[in-house]
């Protein structure tokens, strides 16, 4: 009997998490989004997570396509609004682990208001933000994360807007878990995603990720591999670093690590507590709002 290649090459362990009937995916060679998905799925394997109880919600963008490739309950929503969709999903079905997976423009420009309010409320969402410093999907326009002097199609002579420092923003808004890695740090990222999935509370991981097609190229930073070398060279792991010190500036060290890990009463927990203390026996607790 002929030996097929399948029998020689072991099956890719993350394949079970992917909608393989949708491959090839849309991402460019050297793009970091796929690397982050790999870390995410490996975290699921290592956690031995119940895949029927994990939902992924994305907004719109190259990063927003993640939901569509994951073989989980997955929702590709509207630009900027993954977080409020996820909020409704979580409040209707608290048993789910709800992951929001989207881009920096999606989560912090058009969706910035939703991000800060979900963090303030401490809704139990796990937010993974692909920060490629640019709007990828629409062809490389300036983002709220674009470093000063970087070239984008709508800042053809260099951006002069100050960018957000996302970990600081997340912490200030109330996130209980804040971390940053690059797509060079696959093991650390996998570990941090695992940690995030196990805990409760509004959690945020920023993943610095190359966009060779639109950001790297226009800013003379080479290809995806060159970006990896740059991340390796510039990154400094400082767990617990004050988020005020994590701003990113071109050519300066990139601070990575886990910066915040605290506990705060969750939205659902506080709701339960307030209503049952005020209403006593009249309060009717229902876990999942599913009706038949």
């Amino acid at each position: 009997m002929a030996t097929t290649t399948c029998e020689i090459a072991p099956a890719n362990p993350v394949e079970q998490f992917l909608r393989t009937d949708r491959i090839p995916h849309i991402w460019c060679p050297g793009c970091g989004i796929g690397t982050s998905v790999n870390c995410f799925t490996r975290a699921l394997i290592e956690l031995d997570a119940d895949l029927d109880k994990i939902a992924v919600v994305s907004g719109i963008g190259c990063s927003g396509r993640v939901a569509g490739y994951l073989k989980l309950d997955s929702f590709h929503t509207t630009h900027g609004r993954a977080i409020p969709f996820a909020t409704g999903l979580k409040l209707a079905r608290p048993e789910l682990t709800v992951v929001v997976y989207s881009g920096d423009g999606d989560l912090f420009a058009i969706g910035g208001n939703h991000f800060i309010h979900a963090a303030r409320r401490n809704i139990d969402l796990k937010v993974i933000c692909i920060n490629n410093f640019i709007y990828g999907m629409t062809g490389g326009q300036v983002a709220p994360t674009t470093p000063v002097s970087a070239i984008a199609t709508t800042t053809p002579f260099g951006s002069f807007e100050p960018p957000f420092n996302l970990p600081q923003l997340a912490e200030a808004a109330g996130a209980t878990f804040v971390a940053r890695w690059t797509t060079y740090h696959v093991r650390q990222l996998t570990r941090t995603i695992k940690e995030m999935l196990k805990r409760k509370g509004f959690s945020f991981i920023e993943v610095l990720s190359p966009c060779p097609t639109l950001f790297q190229r226009r800013n003379k930073q080479g290809d995806g591999l060159a970006a990896m070398k740059m991340y390796k060279q510039l990154s400094k792991t400082r767990n617990g670093a004050p988020t005020a010190e994590t701003a990113i500036e071109q050519g300066k060290p990139i601070i990575v690590g886990k910066f915040v890990d605290i506990e705060r009463p969750s939205y659902l927990g506080s709701m339960e507590q307030m209503l049952s203390s005020r209403l006593g026996d009249r309060y009717v607790h229902v876990e999942n709002l599913e009706w038949h």
């Binding site: 309950d73 607790h285 229902v286 709002l289």
Partner: peptide
């Protein structure tokens, strides 16, 4: 037996209900 949330704007409230529906409500 259910939940209400006052969202931060109508973009949010109009999509939060869609999330809730896909969650079963």
């Amino acid at each position: 037996g259910g939940r209400f949330i006052q969202m931060e704007d109508e973009l949010a409230s109009s999509i939060a209900i869609l999330g809730a529906v896909w969650g079963g409500a």
